[in-house]
């Protein structure tokens, strides 16, 4: 239902000291999320995945490229005409501490969008409270406990669940979930993910999942697609299982190598890819952006920009001159 082509975004920091530093958040990203689809953007903070999520949700402008919703190019519409399109896409914020107004009770936070919804659909006022309770139950909260409370009286996890409930108030067609479960209790995360999966299956709601936790992306559905993003470029893209079981880009391999192994329950993967530099603090923009940290980089990597493509006959696309499958992922213990 939404596609993007060649999306770029550069943030310009104004400031006398730094002399207007530029941060290139996105450097030409193509993506597509179908109706009821599950797409996950994976990468470290600062890779541009959050910016891309905000652009998809219509909360951020982009510099070049085209976003189309149901085939309608958004550039062809005036800003006001775009609104009904983007209203169908709801963002679940990364930070539950700042997403809710601290001076309003949860009841107020949910009732405001629900009242609007009730007016639009001609429902009686009593529906508002009923629906608020229903939505809270859906996200695993006790309405009686939560509704009269203020955000500061709830734990971080509860707050995030309220945020998800609020996103559901407008019956969206797509949810952009930005690290939506990272602050939720471990035993409840799967419940929220199952809820997102359920919303996909039953209502055809698409889910764009933005995370650094690849395993949770896997849970959203085996038909899901994974985009691995590094410094504003997609470096690997394909079916979740293909990318997770046989990553070919060294950056994807570094990400998967860094995932803790549950020793005792799991055996570590046979190989382990560790970036040669712990952090990327900018560096030259020529060639492959990961080359500076890549243990397998060659001269070509710093000179030429690798383009995302299917070279090498892998089931996924990648942007690497030297793609090679490496088994970096832990396997259940006891398996030969």
């Amino acid at each position: 239902m939404i596609t993007g082509q060649g999306i770029t975004k550069t943030f310009r920091q104004r400031g006398a000291v730094l002399g207007g530093r530029e941060v290139r958040a996105l450097r030409g990203v193509d993506f597509a999320v179908g109706k009821g689809g599950a797409v996950s953007f994976i990468g470290e903070s600062g890779c541009g995945k959050t910016t891309l999520g905000r652009i998809v949700a219509g909360l951020e402008s982009h510099d070049s490229g085209e976003i189309a919703i149901d085939g309608v190019p958004m550039s062809s519409l005036r800003p006001r005409a775009r609104r009904p399109y983007f209203r169908r896409i709801q963002l679940i914020h990364q930070d539950p501490y700042s997403a809710l107004n601290p001076t309003r009770t949860i009841h107020q936070a949910l009732a405001a969008p629900l009242a609007l919804r009730a007016r639009q659909t001609g429902r009686p006022g009593s529906w508002i409270d009923e629906r608020a309770g229903e939505l809270l139950g859906l996200v695993g909260l006790d309405p009686g406990y939560v509704l009269p409370r203020y955000p500061h009286q709830l734990s971080g996890g509860m707050r995030q669940r309220v945020v998800i409930a609020r996103a559901l108030t407008v019956d969206p067609e797509m949810l952009v979930a930005d690290e939506a479960v990272s602050m939720i209790d471990v035993s409840l995360r799967l419940g929220i993910l199952a809820l997102l999966r359920d919303l996909r299956e039953r209502l055809g709601v698409s889910v764009l999942f933005i995370t650094h936790d690849v395993a949770t992306a896997r849970y959203l559905g085996d038909d899901g697609e994974l985009y691995v993003i590094y410094r504003g470029r997609v470096v690997e893209r394909g079916p979740v299982e293909a990318v997770v079981s046989g990553p070919v880009h060294p950056y994807t391999q570094s990400l998967l190598s860094a995932i803790p192994v549950l020793h005792g329950l799991e055996e570590p993967g046979a190989q382990r890819v560790v970036p040669t530099e712990p952090l990327d603090e900018g560096g030259p923009d020529a060639g492959c952006l990961f080359a500076r940290r890549c243990p397998f980089a060659t001269g070509r990597c710093t000179a030429e920009v690798p383009v995302l493509g299917a070279a090498g006959g892998f089931p996924q696309e990648h942007a690497c001159f030297h793609p090679e499958r490496r088994s970096v992922v832990a396997a259940p213990a006891g398996r030969a």
Binding site: I259, A330, P332
Partner: peptide, 24 residues
Amino acid sequence: RGLLRAVPRLTGDIGEARALPGRP
């Protein structure tokens, strides 16, 4: 046991992952 089962893993059958019912 429930907690371990509630953590999605990278390999194996993802369908084996189970949410713990109820809440803390």
